[in-house]
Amino acid sequence: MSVATELDRLRAAITRHPTLAIAVSGGVDSMVLTHVAHGSGASVTAIHAVSPAVPVSATERVKRHAARHNWTLRLLDAGEMNDPDYLANPVNRCFFCKTNLYSRIRSVTEAPIASGTNADDLGDYRPGLQAAEAHGVVHPFVEAGIGKDGIYALAAALGLSDLERLPAQPCLASRIETGIPVDADMLIFIDKAENALREILPDAEALRCRVTAGGIVAEISPLPDADRADRVARLADTLCHDAGRPFAGIRPYRRGSAFLHPKP
Rank of each mutant, 00 (worst) to 15 (best):
G41M: 06
L239H: 01
G150M: 01
R16P: 05
R228H: 10
G215T: 04
I151E: 05
V28Y: 10
V32T: 03
G256C: 09
V232E: 03
A204K: 02
L235K: 14
H261P: 15
A67D: 13
G26T: 12
G150T: 03
E80N: 10
R208V: 09
A42P: 15
D227M: 15
L201G: 05
D120P: 00
E133V: 02
E6T: 08
N92W: 00
A134W: 11
A119D: 11
R93D: 04
C171G: 03
R11D: 05
A248G: 03
D242V: 07
G79L: 05
T109Y: 02
I220T: 15
L129Y: 04
R210E: 11
T238Q: 07
D8L: 07
T99R: 12
A153W: 13
R210T: 09
A236Q: 05
V56C: 06
R64V: 13
L10D: 02
V217I: 07
E177R: 06
I250M: 06
S51Q: 05
I200H: 07
W71C: 07
A144E: 02
A67W: 04
N100C: 15
P90W: 06
R106C: 14
A46H: 08
F247V: 08
T178M: 10
P262E: 05
A213Y: 09
V32M: 08
Y125W: 05
A21P: 07
L223T: 07
G41Q: 03
P55I: 00
A233D: 00
Q169M: 06
C209M: 09
P167A: 03
P262Y: 14
L73H: 02
R61Y: 07
C240P: 14
S2N: 13
G39H: 02
T212V: 01
S115A: 05
G214S: 04
A144S: 12
L172G: 07
V217L: 08
D121Q: 12
S161D: 15
A258C: 02
L160F: 05
A173I: 00
H69I: 11
A173S: 13
C97D: 03
I151M: 03
L73Q: 02
T59G: 14
I176R: 03
A258F: 05
I190P: 01
P264S: 11
